[in-house]
Structures are given as C-alpha cells and as structure tokens.
Design a protein around this nucleic acid. Structure first.
Lengths: 181, 181
DNA sequence: ACACTCATGTAAGCTGTTACATGATTAA
DNA sequence: TTAATCATGTAACAGCTTACATGAGTGT
C-alpha cells in the first residue's frame, strides 16, 4: 500500500510544475524521449489532463489560435504542487521498470537535492542487486545450449554496468553540489 | 496492421518451444529476468496458457503431485511451432520498448541465425537513430536549467552507447557463426 | 492531389494487475 | 504461529492503445 507508481497522471503534473503547457506541447516534449519512456496516446493524455483539472490540481487558459485550433494551456496550482511533493516523497515500488525510473528522473527539478540523491542511491542498490543476480545466472549457465538466455543475460549485464557507471558519476556530481550549498 | 507485438501469449509459446513447462516453471524462469522484462502475474499468465491450449497450439499433461499440488506441464504442438515461426518472421513494431526487445531476444533459439542477425541489425538501426536524436537534443540544451531533462538525456546516451557496443560485438560473433556453417 | 502538422477529444476494446480463493508443506 | 514455497486459478478493475472524428494550413 502507498508506494508510488509513475502513472501518467503524476508525470504530467510534474511536467506542468516546470512550465505551463498544452497537451500537444507535452506530446512533443515526450516524443523526443520516446525511446526511454514511450509516448502516451491522445487517448490517455487528454483524459489525464482533464482529471487533473477536475481535481483542481491544475488550471487552464484557453488561447484561441489565429488560423489554428485553439490551445489549452495548463498551469499547476498550489494544491497540485503539494500533491506532487507528497507523491515524490513516497518510496518507489521496488521493481520499477526502466521506463518508470526515467519518468521520475525527468521530474528532478521538483526534487530537493537530498531527495534526488536518495532516489539515485536507491536505484543504485536495485541495479547492483540485479547485476549480481544476472551474473550468478550467467555462471550457472556457462556454455549451455540456450542461446536466447545467454544473449539476454549478456545484454542485461552490459546495460547494468553502464547504468552503474552513470549512477556513480551522477551521484558524485550531486554530492559536490550538496557540499557547495 | 500485422507488425508483431510481444504479447505474453507468444512469449509463453516461445518458451514452451524450448522445453515443456508448467505455469509455475515459467514464473520462476522469468523472475530471474524481471529487471529486464518484468514478471507477469498469475492473472495474466494462467489465462494466457489456457488460451494457447484452447487454440490447440499447446497440449497439457497433468502430473499429480506427491504431497504437493498437481502440476500441469504444457508442451508445444506442431501447430504452435508454425504459429510461432509465422510470428517471428513478421517485422517488429518500429518503436519497441526495451522490454519487448529482450522478450524476443530470449526466444533466439526459435530464430534462424539469419533472422536473428536481421533482428539485431534492425535494433541497431533503431538505437543509432535514438542515440542521434538524444545527442541533438543534448546539444540544443547545453547548460539550461532543466536538470531533469539533462539527467535523462545523459542517462539515455550512456545506455544507448552501451547497447550499441553490445549489438556490434554480438553481431560480429553471429557473423562468424554464419561463416562457419 | 495527397499527406502531414497543428490541436483537441471520444468510445470501444485489449491487456494487464490486484486481490482474492484454495490447500498442503516446510522453515524461523 | 507466522510466514513462505509450491501450484493453480478467478473476478473486478485500472490503464492504456486503437481507431475514429473534426478542421484548417502547409508542404511536395
């Protein structure tokens, strides 16, 4: 109960915390990162915005377009900021997929530096565990016939070590920043 | 229309192509790789098996357990193998998430070496594109204030280059194997 | 002429999770 | 005695995609 899921809802709320945007703006922004987090369809994005609006976490301003369809610019409200902060402070589900990790990472500006560091540290622990698990499986397997499993394990280990690398470097930079403040 | 999705259905069928298993066996196997592909819940796994059975792509043998619950061992049938081959031969959706890539990779034993090479080659092209996109975004951004985006782009670039590395190495090993046959 | 971008949205459907139910066995 | 492993399954629900609808402008 009550570990945070990265629902589209909170992700969108987090984006609006950085700057007011329309649904279309969000789509464009997210599309550039679709490899990491996928891009939500209109059928999920627009209803998400509407639901945030109904709960008064955000507000809209309708800007009639000159020779274009009108745009609805959503802005986060104080209630929304509070809800976002609460959400950010709950721990993440243990086995979050990569997509969920990046979605939350994108909201870094809404984190305090300490919270962000904790988030990355937590991820580091998880990746380290999985890396060890994969390594263990890899040994047990040695040169069996199961090509698919061998490839997948290899792939996983490569990604895991790259991620560990990135996490270590990023955590170091973050710690420096903590000391300078 | 008709590009292949990695539904649980085909993934399970592919696993059964390697060896007969029970639902529980599949769960255990997959759990070790949950970081990469997640683990399906009983609520999706058991219905998937049942549906494969109803379509006669697999058959069951019920093994009564001694002092344990009985196990249902599923085996793939010829019809199932045909369906699997057909599925493998269709092209993958352009923007498959990492999870989908690995799920298919795990089925490597059901691929011909040529098909497998094509699959990896295709992935290589996709990753290269995304890598370039991320790099371009990264330049445009330079030292703006958007910490979240900067972190995510960095992270993406690190992963992308690790994956490119793995793909290149794996493709070389695969080509050697193609020449020795 | 055709397709794509801009910009919003809805309805039906698919896929999956959550939470339960069953029930015996073994380890802390 | 509490929990976990073994082993299967169902029902209700959540969340998302697909495919459509609208409609003007811009590019090839």
């Amino acid at each position: 109960m009550s570990t945070a899921k990265v629902s589209l809802r909170y992700f969108v709320l987090g984006l609006l915390a950085q700057q007011p945007m329309s649904g279309y703006d969000i789509k464009r922004f997210v599309k550039g990162l679709s490899w990491l987090i996928g891009s939500p369809s209109s059928g999920s994005l627009y209803p998400a915005l509407r639901s945030l609006l109904e709960d008064q976490l955000v507000s809209v301003e309708i800007i009639p377009g000159v020779d274009k369809p009108p745009r609805k610019i959503y802005s986060i409200e104080q209630v929304g900021r509070d809800a976002l902060r609460q959400w950010i402070e709950k721990p993440v589900v243990a086995d979050a997929p990569l997509k969920a990790f990046v979605m939350r990472l994108l909201l870094a500006d809404s984190f305090s530096t300490t919270n962000l560091a904790a988030y990355l540290e937590q991820r580091r622990t998880q990746v380290a565990t999985h890396q060890a698990d994969l390594a263990k499986m890899s040994e047990t397997l040695s040169s069996s016939t199961d090509l698919g499993l061998r490839l997948a394990l290899n792939y996983g280990l490569e990604l895991a070590s790259a991620e560990m690398n990135w996490l270590d470097n990023t955590l170091i930079r973050l710690d420096e920043r903590l000391q300078n403040s």
